[in-house]
Amino acid sequence: MPTEWKLFADLAERAGDKHVTVDAAAGDTVGDALEALLEATPELEDRVLEDGELRSQINVLRNGTNVLVEEEGMETVLDADDELALFPPVSGG
Rank of each mutant, 00 (worst) to 15 (best):
M1T: 13
M1A: 13
M1L: 11
P2K: 13
P2C: 06
T3K: 07
K6F: 12
K6T: 13
L7G: 01
F8M: 09
F8P: 06
F8K: 08
F8Y: 15
A9W: 04
D10Y: 14
L11S: 02
A12T: 07
E13V: 10
E13F: 05
A15D: 00
G16Q: 03
G16T: 03
G16R: 01
D17Y: 03
K18M: 08
K18D: 11
K18R: 15
H19Y: 13
V20L: 09
V20I: 13
V22D: 01
V22T: 04
D23H: 11
D23C: 00
A26I: 03
A26W: 04
A26R: 09
G27C: 05
D28C: 04
V30L: 03
G31P: 00
G31I: 00
D32H: 13
A33W: 05
L34Y: 07
L34A: 01
L34M: 05
E35T: 15
E35Q: 14
E35V: 10
A36C: 01
A36M: 00
A36I: 00
L37E: 05
L38I: 05
E39N: 11
T41C: 15
P42F: 06
E45Y: 07
E45D: 10
D46Q: 12
D46F: 08
L49A: 02
L49T: 03
L49R: 09
L49Q: 02
E50M: 10
E50C: 03
E50K: 15
E50L: 13
G52F: 05
G52N: 02
L54D: 00
L54H: 04
S56H: 14
S56W: 12
S56I: 11
Q57P: 08
Q57V: 14
I58E: 00
N59V: 15
N59T: 15
V60C: 05
R62V: 14
N63T: 07
N66M: 02
N66I: 01
V67N: 04
V67W: 08
L68W: 07
L68N: 14
L68T: 08
V69N: 14
V69H: 13
V69L: 15
E70D: 15
E71L: 15
E71N: 11
E72Q: 15
E72V: 09
E72Y: 12
G73K: 04
M74H: 10
M74S: 09
T76Y: 04
V77K: 14
V77W: 06
V77M: 09
V77P: 08
V77Y: 06
L78E: 06
L78T: 10
D79G: 08
D79W: 04
A80M: 02
D81S: 12
D82W: 11
L84F: 07
A85H: 07
A85K: 08
L86E: 06
F87R: 00
P88H: 04
P89W: 11
P89R: 13
V90N: 11
V90L: 15
V90M: 14
S91K: 11
G92N: 07
